[in-house]
């Protein structure tokens, strides 16, 4: 197998917030990780471990205090405009613009790209159809259920045919069965596009279900454990695996494999 090109690289990234009273808060501490093309990586960690900060750093919305970040070979903060329509982002809350209908929300990225009305309509309708939202194009977000809103959010991300997908707790606020159904849909679509995907979550089941690789983050954000997800594992093995992950998160110390890698 030919090793594919790295899509996301974070090297010794550190991010410190300084509040108004001068106190400092380390959100990300010496974070080093690499994601290769076509990989679907789940990132798990406790809430408040700086996952969202990491997310903002990857999107180029903030500049890290130290270290370097490259996405698709460029710095997302410095080369801000290079990333026009390169990211497909699915947020924790759907972040649909309340004054836009489902259809208008789905195509907002295409408007930014300057597509013609006809193209916008065609692409948006295609993805709304894929996400089983036909008949709801003209509904405003408040008229849709949480699950449907997140579907629109997913359609909005796929409309751009981006190079890399980021999902931040994308199914976290939905009820179990809705979340389960939506995860399946999302996984299928990601599988079809064969694009790189980073999924941030606090739910280990979700991480294992979607990801082919799992990264455990400590608090502040640093890699505690980086492992390929077990495929075709027995039930007992899966339980053992999950317990190991939970234990690492709880102790907030690097797993010996990660520690060994850091030393080498």
């Amino acid at each position: 197998m030919i090793p594919s090109a790295p899509v996301v690289q974070m090297e010794h990234v550190r991010h410190v917030f300084t509040s108004v009273d001068g106190s400092r808060f380390v959100a990300v501490d010496d974070l080093t990780l690499e994601v290769r093309e076509g990989e679907i990586v789940s990132i798990v960690g406790k809430t408040g471990c700086g996952k969202s900060t990491m997310f903002n750093l990857l999107l180029g919305l903030e500049n890290p205090t130290a270290g370097s970040i490259t996405v698709l070979g460029r710095d997302p903060y410095q080369d801000f405009d290079f990333f026009r329509a390169k990211f497909g982002v699915i947020f924790q809350t759907d972040r649909l613009l309340p004054w836009r209908t489902a259809f208008a929300n789905a195509k907002v990225g295409l408007e930014i790209l300057g597509y013609s009305e006809a193209e916008q309509g065609e692409i948006a309708r295609h993805w709304l159809h894929k996400l089983e939202l036909m008949g709801f194009e003209d509904a405003y977000p408040h008229e849709l259920s949480g699950g449907m809103r997140q579907r629109v959010g997913i359609a909005r991300a796929f409309c751009l045919s981006p190079d890399v997908f980021f999902a931040d707790e994308a199914f976290g606020h939905l009820d179990q069965s809705t979340a389960q159904r939506l995860r399946e849909v999302f996984l299928t679509l990601i599988g079809e596009t064969k694009k790189t995907c980073l999924l941030i979550t606090h739910n280990i089941h979700e991480a294992l279900e979607i990801g082919s690789r799992l990264i455990v983050l400590g608090k502040p954000s640093r890699v505690l454990y980086d492992v390929q997800c077990p495929t075709r594992a027995s039930r007992a093995e899966l339980v053992e695996f999950e317990e190991r992950i939970l234990d690492i998160i709880e102790r907030n110390e690097p797993h010996h494999e990660a520690a060994a890698r850091a030393r080498s």
Binding site: L59, A85, F87, V89, R95, L97, G109, E111, I112
Partner: peptide, 15 residues
């Protein structure tokens, strides 16, 4: 949140 959501798509200031 909306601001960040749109900025991730890199709109112009005008957009």
């Amino acid at each position: 949140d909306y601001y960040d959501m749109l900025r991730a798509m890199r709109p112009t200031r005008r957009q």
